[in-house]
C-alpha cells in the first residue's frame, strides 16, 4: 500500500503541527471541517470534560512532536500489502495449524475411563496435564511452617496452604510488569530476569513431576528436594551463561548505544585539590 511520503520538517514555522488529531498540514487526507478539533471541544466544555479534551490535545501534540522529529517515518511503504502477502501467509499458517490438530486427533484419539463411581477411589487421580503444576502446588505441605508459638501447630491447614501457593504464583505473574521495569528486552540485557524465567519454567516441570510422585520411581524426599534444587540450579547455570554471552555482545550493544547517543568528547578529569 503506497501513500504519500511524509517529508521531515526542518522547522515547523510554515507548517504548524495541529493538535486536533489532523497532524501536519500536508497530511495525505485533510481534516474534515465538520469535525470539531480537540481545542474547540475544550473551549466549549467545562469541568471533567474540559480536562479530558485538554489531555487529548496534549497527547496528540506529543505524538506529533515525536513523528515530526523521527526520521524513520520517511518512507514509501507503510506496511506489507494485505493481499497477497498477508492473506497467503495467514492462510498457509492457518491450514498448517489446523492440519496439526487434525493429525494429532487422528493419531491419538482420547478414550474414556470407567464410569464415575463415588464408592471406589482410583489408585491414580490426575487432572489434565496442564493442571499438574497447580496440582503439585497442593502437595507442598512439608513447607507449611509449624511454629513453636502455636505450640508446634501449623500456621494453616495444608490444603489452604496449597491453594494459597497457587494464588501467590498467579498473583506474582500478574504483578510482573510492575516488579521488573525498564526498557531492556533481550535476555542478555537482563541475565537475572531471564534466568528467573528459566528457573520458573523448570519449576513448573519439577512441581508437575511432584504432583505425580506416586508414579515416579524416586524416593519421595529426594523428589521433593529436587523439585526446588533443580530450578535454582538451572537458574544459576543460565545466569552465568547469559553473563558470559553478554561479554560477547558488549561490542555490538555499545555500538548500538552510541549510535543513539554519540559519546561526549573526552575531557581529562580535574586533578584533586
Amino acid at each position: 500500500m503506497k501513500r504519500k511520503t511524509y517529508k521531515k520538517q526542518k522547522d515547523n514555522v510554515e507548517f504548524p503541527i495541529l493538535t486536533d488529531g489532523s497532524g501536519l498540514m500536508q497530511n495525505p487526507v485533510p481534516p474534515d471541517d465538520q469535525t470539531p478539533s480537540w481545542s474547540e471541544r475544550k473551549s466549549r466544555s467545562t469541568g471533567l470534560a474540559q480536562l479530558t479534551y485538554e489531555y487529548f490535545e496534549r497527547a496528540r501534540l506529543e505524538d506529533q512532536d515525536i513523528r515530526s522529529r523521527a526520521d524513520y517515518l520517511e518512507r514509501e511503504v507503510l506496511g506489507f500489502p494485505m493481499w497477497p502477502h498477508e492473506v497467503v501467509r495467514g492462510f498457509a499458517i492457518t491450514s498448517f495449524f489446523i492440519g496439526i490438530i487434525l493429525l494429532l486427533s487422528a493419531v491419538a484419539p482420547p478414550h474414556i475411563a470407567a464410569p464415575a463411581n463415588p464408592s471406589q477411589t482410583p489408585a491414580v487421580i490426575l487432572p489434565d496435564w496442564y493442571l499438574y503444576w497447580s496440582f503439585g502446588l497442593l502437595k507442598l505441605e512439608p513447607l507449611n511452617p509449624a511454629l513453636s508459638i502455636l505450640g508446634g501447630d501449623k500456621i494453616m491447614l495444608d490444603r489452604t496452604f496449597g491453594v494459597l501457593a497457587n494464588l501467590v504464583v498467579v498473583g506474582f505473574l500478574a504483578a510482573l510488569p510492575f516488579v521488573n521495569k525498564g526498557k531492556a528486552r533481550r535476555p542478555v540485557e537482563e541475565p537475572f530476569w531471564a534466568a528467573f524465567g528459566v528457573a520458573g519454567v523448570v519449576f513448573a516441570f519439577t512441581v508437575s513431576v511432584l504432583s505425580v510422585k506416586n508414579l515416579v520411581p524416586l524416593n519421595s524426599h529426594l523428589l521433593f528436594d529436587l523439585t526446588f534444587i533443580l530450578p535454582v540450579l538451572f537458574g544459576i547455570v543460565f545466569y552465568s551463561l547469559l553473563k558470559t554471552m553478554r561479554e560477547g555482545y558488549m561490542y555490538e550493544l555499545n555500538r548500538r548505544y552510541y549510535r543513539l547517543r554519540p559519546p561526549k568528547p573526552y575531557r581529562p578529569p580535574k586533578p584533586p585539590k
Partner: peptide, 19 residues
Amino acid sequence: DQLSFWAGQIGVEMALSIP
C-alpha cells in the same frame, strides 16, 4: 467417568480450602 469424578472431588476440596 472416574477421572472426571475424582478431579471434581479435588476441585471441591480446593474450593473449600479457600479461607
